[in-house]
Design a protein around this nucleic acid. Structure first.
Lengths: 249, 249
DNA sequence: GTAGCAATACTTGTCAGACAATTGACTTTT
DNA sequence: AAAAGTCAATTGTCTGACAAGTATTGCTAC
């Protein structure tokens, strides 16, 4: 009887993180957040739990806390850059930069997991997989080539046929049937293969920035394995690195 | 009179972070940390404060907590990978992978800040700067080319002449005269120029991964501006990206 | 003897309330 | 008018407690 409500009953911390993220995103840069006691009451958690949650966002540089004053949302990146701490779709990033992103060359295939795929997605060999690939354009120029591989029962082809704007991430978020947790992204530099060079209208061997990402659900399962090839110059990614971990051995 | 002791009297949270980082670094991968009540007693803070501190490390993927079981140090990178959340010198990274890193082709120049340098380092034009460049070898093969530019009075040439192992970061940490806070790193993919190709013994136009980093002190000043060129295949960098910030607009 | 089950000790997750430290605005005094 | 003091608001930290999850232990039934 309570199976429907079950999704609501994740750990308070997960829900808290979502609510906090939403609140921070909706609060204008530089503005103050409600005081901790009040915020804890609003979000329905204790102040201790709230503070634990805020620590993570503070560590990501999204908020700044000043004793005796309050907690403020820090102005988020100038214009063209994107922090890697937060997982954001290419479309959303492009929009924020002021570019209109469109999708083209969409290909949706059903494939069978071989040795390579089964290992990467942590599924058995022979499993039916969905492979989605497309090119992202801004101002009519191809700037990124994206491929996603998903295990069965995550997205149906119907989902992709209706309301797919190029971002698997956004589609998963919009559906909301599975809770997404984190993405583990490898960063590499590669030379364009003949196939990809053709799609991106560049020369074979040209330089590309490659993200290899595994998207994990709340349950710890891999729900998406993706390759994202970016044309340098149109996207810039940065990361904030903290001092102090292995620097003490 | 108390200026010397001042450094000792940071907020408990800062000291806690340092101690925690050290503890995590010293604990073998996969091992369990002491239980929270005991750890709080050891570190001299309350359990609430301890948990706030641990959240940040959990967010960086360094530890994993399992209710009813304990907190474990996650196996830090299988063989070749390095998380970007933590700022670590190339030498240390290589050592952890099991490679012996050596430095060569060291060049130290005094240069005068032009328009470009003055903007990047936030100093006035005409300021005297120190420029350090060198090649990092593992097994006699060049794998990275690093250049650093530093404002005056950060490092003298004497510092570089004695006890410089290739890492400006470690040198600054060892000196300890300025508190380091964070590094803001841009990630790009570039083609090797003729000059760099020669140093790295590759072909001009070959693919390189490039980190452009600004290192900030506690006071918010830029103390190091560096370009780091990596040969793909010898280094792999990854980043953990969290769901949920701008995904709700 | 062995498989299954219940009790139990231990761990992390969360909560409530309190007090200390800091800041900024307001009030009072000089 | 300027300076000092007062005070309310906010974050930082602590204490103690209970809830929830996990693995081990020991008992029981067969």
């Amino acid at each position: 009887m309570d199976s429907i409500v079950k999704m609501e009953t994740q750990h308070p911390f997960q829900m808290l993180q979502t609510k906090l993220a939403k609140l921070i995103a909706e609060t204008p840069a530089g503005e103050r957040l409600p005081a901790e006691p009040e915020l804890a009451r609003i979000l329905g958690v204790s102040r201790a739990t709230l503070r634990e949650g805020m620590r993570t966002f503070e560590g990501q540089g999204l908020i700044r806390r000043r004793q005796g004053v309050g907690t403020f949302v820090v102005p988020q990146s100038k214009v063209i850059e994107a922090g890697l701490e937060v997982l954001e779709s290419i479309e959303r990033l492009a929009t924020r930069i002021g570019l209109k992103a469109t999708m083209g060359a969409l290909q949706i295939k059903d494939i069978v997991a071989g040795v390579e795929e089964s290992e990467k997605l942590q599924v058995e060999e022979g499993t039916q997989l969905v492979k989605v690939s497309r090119v992202i354009y801004t101002d009519g120029r191809p700037v990124a080539y994206l491929t996603d591989m998903l295990p069965p029962n995550i997205l149906t082809e119907e989902d992709l046929a209706t309301g797919f704007n190029g971002s698997v991430l956004e589609l998963l978020l919009k559906r909301g049937n599975i809770g997404l947790a984190k993405s583990f992204t490898d960063i590499q530099a590669v030379a364009a293969s003949a196939e990809i060079a053709k799609k991106l209208e560049i020369q074979r061997g040209d330089v590309l920035l490659l993200f290899v990402a595994r998207l994990y659900s709340d349950a710890g399962e891999i729900v998406d394995f993706s390759y994202s090839y970016f044309l340098p110059g149109y996207f810039r990614f940065h990361v904030i690195r903290s001092i102090g971990n292995s620097n003490f051995n």
